[in-house]
């Protein structure tokens, strides 16, 4: 970015490598899963998260993120502060209601990821602050997630549409559901499709209800854009497909 002159050369560059080890951790605590800011995506993939079906979406996103080499360099917080629609881990973490612990010499604060994201490349982080960790409330039993994106090729893609879904079932009833996309409307940053969530909550899970949510509810809260890569119409149609596929896959994972 600096080389492309898209951002000015900063006066100082804080190199977090010195505290890389300290901030690279994945721990289960009472209030949820804590992922240290400099934990790489690869390190996450080696953790219990990738073995627990309640976090199945982490496996999906990992396999679709950049390339293997990039997954070994990219950190979870790095992905979050970049704050674009292409930062796949944001899309996924939104459906886990993730929070961030932010620290500075003045103290620390906890902010919801959703509130942290202000706009594209704009986040709620002061110059003297840094993200310390990501906290994911531990999901209940009988829950799972799914992440999906696709494009012309399989790898190194932005994705025509990116979407994640978290599903919690009680028997066959949708006890909780959270849905996110690379964008929903206006801001080109990942966001939740809350109307669709509300529509689904409390209903019996069925293919029909999923289709209805995708075809009838999602379009009422989503507005897609046309750009040189593809059209708003295609993105909208694919958002529906991604929603359906994510929910069905999460469902199968819970049942399976």
């Amino acid at each position: 970015m600096i080389r492309d002159k898209r951002i000015p050369t900063p006066k100082y560059l804080v190199d977090l490598n010195a505290i890389k080890k300290e901030l690279a951790f994945i721990e289960k605590k009472e209030d949820g899963i804590h992922i240290g800011a400099t934990t790489t995506l690869y390190e996450i993939s080696q953790s219990f998260l990738h073995k627990d079906k309640r976090f199945a979406g982490f496996v999906d996103v990992f396999k679709l993120f950049g390339t293997m080499a990039l997954r070994m360099e990219a950190t979870i917080a790095g992905n979050i502060v970049s704050a674009t629609q292409y930062n796949d881990y944001i899309t996924l973490l939104l459906v886990y209601d993730a929070k961030l612990r932010i620290k500075s010499i003045d103290g620390e604060r906890i902010v919801k990821l959703e509130d942290f994201l202000i706009d594209k490349r704009k986040v709620d982080l002061k110059p003297n602050e840094l993200i310390y960790e990501v906290i994911i409330p531990e999901p209940p039993e009988k829950s799972s997630s799914s992440f999906y994106k696709f494009d012309r090729r399989r790898l190194l893609i932005a994705g025509v549409v990116t979407g994640a879904a978290f599903l919690h079932l009680e028997d066959n009833k949708i006890a909780d559901v959270r849905i996110s996309f690379d964008m929903v409307r206006e801001k080109r940053i990942p966001a939740r499709a809350k109307k669709t969530e509300e529509f689904l909550k409390g209903k019996e899970f069925s293919e029909e209800i999923i289709v209805k949510a995708a075809e009838e509810v999602l379009p009422t809260e989503m507005e897609r854009v046309t750009d040189w890569w593809t059209t708003a119409e295609y993105r909208m149609d694919m958002s529906k497909v991604v929603l359906k596929r994510n929910l069905l896959r999460a469902y199968e994972r819970i049942k399976g």
Binding site: T67, R152, R153, R154, L155, L156, A158, W228, W229
Partner: peptide, 16 residues
């Protein structure tokens, strides 16, 4: 030109 790099000019990867 919009796609002036290899993330936006897609060529087949090893998985394609």
């Amino acid at each position: 030109v919009y796609n002036t790099n290899l993330s936006t000019y897609h060529i087949p990867t090893g998985l394609d």
